[in-house]
Design a protein around this nucleic acid. Structure first.
Lengths: 346, 346
DNA sequence: CTCCCCGGTGGGATCGCTCTCATGCACCGG
DNA sequence: CCGGTGCATGAGAGCGATCCCACCGGGGAG
């Protein structure tokens, strides 16, 4: 019946092509194509025949062939600067993935994880992004010196940042949580519950989230006429939080309140505080930032600022899809707010 | 100097094509192609001319066009069953990503994250995998009832499982840690440090890791003639660990040792134990499993079994690359061992 | 001297799809 | 009865790469 071409070994079944679907349905390639892509100007009979043929053969359009002509790739990149465990292990990243995957769930769009090594290999990433291998990109956790930002702004590739970009020669769309206000509210919560000597473990100062949360902390203290000198830097990880707390206790033994710019750092801090015999919250009140699972399972459970990462990156995904569909309404950033979640540590 | 073709709007720069490279280099498309792909049978002059042209134009081969003819996609899928936060938030997943990305770092191969929803949409995933959209797949965290396994075994798609698959009509390659031995050693460690009433919080019993660690726990207890009745199920998350511990304390108030099949569950357990006034390790010794960052920052720091996930999935990536290159040496599984990491909880 | 081999080259077919365009046909108003 | 309108259809031209094959010229073997 089927006469195998001599060029293809019989045991290696090849994916069905549109041509085969068309033959089986008794229509032309063109009609089959129309039926599969939305079905405009296709008679019900033809549509039904094609649908049946597709089901029977288990046909999936060859993405490469389609991409070649439409110049759409039906895939977007999630760009993560830095390959190391820092980013990947962060629940923030997991949340981004979850939100983005939710945004893409209804579409046929695939998610490509682009782990952008810095330095030499960086231009490989930017070239990949610029030369039409993806329809758009979501950039997460980027640092001040990432060249990405300007490269992407110059190229016409649709992209959305999760977290405020640094400079914008051409405005770039982004979603973010109001980190400044979050930092301020967290600190105000500490003040309201009686703290007078309030320290912070800041995030990396080459990331907007780090700078803004610190600024919020500072403003709240100045408004309350309290000292804003007890500051130590961390890098959002638990280990850095622990180390920072050691420094803090040595330099400012009188602290009675601590705002950590991430829950991971706060959890590191809790351990060190316990080891130093400081009770939380009786001796030192601690508030974190993020509330992405870690906070609920520390000891004591962590009071923190809820960071709507999942929702935020779902929106980022949707904005990107809009840009790609050229329905780009505006490049206005979408800012979410972080709310206090009271548990036991403050 | 550059004379823009009239057919394409000037403000929308198009990616350079091989043809343009060839023209600029003064050679034919064929020669340019050869020069770019390894340079066999290309004269040094031609090679140099092409290299220069590539650099000048910033040429990147059009992946779609290449894929169409070579039938390689230069991308592999990381298949994650279940979209929910459970998997994505697990440091195990982060470790997999890290290892895999390390294996691909030297290649031009892109990583596609395939989040496989179950039920209705499941066949969309398998169809995607079968119909040549990727060159291979790494499957992580799969469950007993995932249809994936048999589908993949039947298709000829190169694939490697991270974690032992359930059944293998045709042997499927995998990497794994020896969970049985890990569970046994963890329990033996508790026995050696004096525990006599040893409980476990097991992982999901539809995952090989859950079953095997439980079997190891049971064997160690039987060998030591101790009771193996104190078992509660969890799902690897911290919340489930906390809930399981509540049950455990109610049913078996005399426990003095606890083996949690994951660090997250162990950290949940630590919180509950503290709340019930049980001191760790004095009253109850606790040992976890994984050692992927969480363990070091619990309070007290968690004694656990080191699970070489990153290394393991790097090897998975390399095995996959070998399969793809048809240098598939064997389908022998690669088994790693989990070693005790002593901290303070046991 | 002739033949063949082989490194280097270019022409063209081809991968599977979409899209433009021409064609056929039914239906409507004039 | 005829020209126009519009829907459904099919033929054919590409998209940008790879790869097969024919070709060319020079050097070694017969």
């Amino acid at each position: 019946m089927t006469q195998d071409g001599p060029e293809r070994p019989a045991n290696l079944p090849h994916a069905p092509t549109l041509e085969e679907v068309a033959d089986l349905a008794g229509v032309s390639r063109s009609t089959a194509s129309r039926a599969i892509n939305g079905g405009l100007k296709v008679s019900p009979e033809a549509q039904a025949a094609v649908d049946a043929a597709v089901a029977e053969l288990g046909y999936t359009p060859n993405r490469a062939a389609r991409t070649l002509v439409t110049r759409r790739t039906d895939s977007i990149a999630l760009v993560v600067p830095e390959p190391d465990e820092k980013v990947l292990n962060d629940p923030y990243f997991a949340g981004t993935l979850q939100g983005l995957s939710a945004a893409l769930a209804e579409t046929e769009i695939q998610l490509i994880l682009l782990i952008a090594r810095r330095g030499d290999e960086a231009h490989r990433t930017t070239r990949y992004l610029r030369n039409g291998h993806v329809d758009g990109a979501v950039i997460v956790s980027h640092h001040r010196d990432d060249a990405l930002e300007s490269v992407l702004a110059q190229s016409r590739l649709p992209c959305v940042f999760v977290g405020r970009p640094w400079t914008t020669p051409r405005p770039v769309q982004y979603v973010d949580v109001n980190n400044y206000l979050g930092g301020r509210r967290a600190t105000e919560h500490l003040i309201a519950t009686g703290c007078r000597r309030i320290a912070t473990i800041a995030g990396p100062l080459d990331m907007a989230a780090g700078v803004d949360r610190l600024a919020g902390w500072r403003q709240a203290l100045q408004d309350a006429h309290l000292s804003d000198t007890a500051m130590v830097r961390g890098d959002f990880t638990a280990a850095s939080g622990a180390a920072a707390t050691e420094q803090l206790l040595a330099a400012h033994p009188d602290v009675d309140g601590l705002f950590a710019a991430s829950d991971l750092m706060a959890s590191g801090a809790l351990g060190v505080l316990a080891r130093h015999g400081r009770r939380v919250p009786q001796d030192v009140r601690v508030i974190g930032f993020d509330d992405l699972g870690v906070a609920a399972s520390t000891n004591p459970p962590l009071t923190t600022m809820a960071n709507p990462v999942v929702e935020m990156s779902r929106v980022a995904g949707e904005l990107l899809l809009e840009q790609i569909a050229r329905r780009a309404t505006s490049v206005e950033p979408r800012i979410f707010s972080a709310e206090v979640v009271v548990r036991e540590s403050a």
